[in-house]
């Protein structure tokens, strides 16, 4: 399985941690226990206060702008190693879709933490 991750080295990836944090950055290296070294790392802070505006289409996050102060904030974390047992999901980012999303207008609650 580390082969699958090895393939993503040098690419921009998404990481969901067990605390429910969302990290975006360039994958620099992986090992067999899924420790990840990432550079240009950013944490996306989701700080919506409640339910998002409309039901229905999956595109709601694009359509309705977030209320003041509820949009996604990004903070730079530089280079970090994420310990493997704290990793929940590693995702490959589709740059075409990514460039179309205005994250500052997305309002959502933070992801719940993983409960074992």
């Amino acid at each position: 399985m580390s082969n699958e991750l090895q393939r993503l080295v040098g690419r921009n990836i998404f990481v969901m941690t067990c605390e429910g944090r969302v990290l975006i950055g360039k994958l620099r290296g992986v090992d067999t226990v899924m420790n990840l070294t990432m550079s240009d790392l950013r944490e996306r802070l989701f700080r919506g206060s409640g339910l998002p505006p409309a039901e229905g289409a999956g595109e709601t996050f694009m359509a309705e702008p977030a209320a003041e102060g509820e949009g996604v904030e990004e903070i730079s974390l530089g280079t970090m190693v994420v310990r493997g047992d704290n990793v929940a999901v590693v995702g490959e980012i589709d740059e075409d879709i990514e460039s179309q999303i205005d994250w500052s207008s997305v309002a959502a609650l933070p992801l719940p933490p993983i409960k074992h």
Binding site: M1, F14, V90, V106
Partner: peptide, 10 residues
């Protein structure tokens, strides 16, 4: 919406 730009994942 956190994963809306993710196409494949592990």
């Amino acid at each position: 919406p956190h994963m809306s730009s993710v196409s494949s994942c592990l």
